[in-house]
């Protein structure tokens, strides 16, 4: 199976911290479901018994950004919504990744209009684009597996200077 097969008799095995952390990270990705429109419904379907995202260790959809490491932007991002998406992204702790789900997030999709941002990469760093309008749930699962591959290759040294996101709590005496 997993780690057990690598263990020596006395319980030792040698690896790098990066490999171990990467393995741990990729097996329990906590997605932030940034559900905005149609794609959110397919994202819901991924959680349902038929497709069952729990098989890949990502069933823990947290609606608070501070507990998440993968943001799935699902749906059309308008100019009015963009600051909100950005703010939620800023609140996620490092390391963090972004999946742009669906044609709208990747390029504006069929909405070439005054109010739709033509691709969220104008204000967010995107790690993976997922085609479809909306993508089928199996497609999203495929994206998650691909993403896990990237996550497992994360190097801890890249985040030496990473800070926790600031908490803007209102404090008054």
């Amino acid at each position: 199976m997993g780690l057990e097969s690598l263990l020596k008799d006395n319980g030792f095995f040698t690896t790098t911290v990066d490999a171990l952390a990467g393995w741990a990270r990729k097996s329990s990705v906590w997605p932030m479901p940034m559900g905005i429109s149609c794609c959110a419904i397919e994202m819901m379907a991924v959680g349902d018994p038929k497709y069952d995202i729990a098989r890949f260790g990502s069933e823990v959809m947290r609606f608070t950004p501070r507990q998440c490491d993968l943001m799935i932007v699902a749906g059309t991002v308008t100019y009015k919504m963009a600051p909100v998406v950005r703010k939620i992204y800023d609140q996620m702790p490092e390391p963090k990744w972004v999946i742009a789900m669906g044609a709208c997030t990747a390029s504006g999709g069929i909405y070439r209009t005054y109010s739709v941002v033509q691709g969220i990469d104008q204000f967010l760093p995107v790690d993976l684009y997922l085609a479809g309008c909306p993508p089928r749930p199996d497609n999203l699962l495929n994206a998650l597996i691909t993403m896990q591959d990237k996550i497992s290759r994360t190097k801890a040294a890249d985040f030496k200077n990473a800070k926790l996101p600031e908490l803007n709590v209102i404090q008054k005496n």
Binding site: Y79, R112, T113, Y114, S115
Partner: peptide, 29 residues
């Protein structure tokens, strides 16, 4: 629907479909 500081009225016929560039600011990357 649109942000309060947006100046135009989009369904007027002289408003272009793709809008006026930079009329609504995007967050900085």
């Amino acid at each position: 629907y649109l942000p309060e500081d947006f100046e135009y009225h989009p369904l007027q016929k002289d408003f272009p479909l793709m809008g006026i560039p930079d009329s609504i600011p995007l967050p900085k990357k």
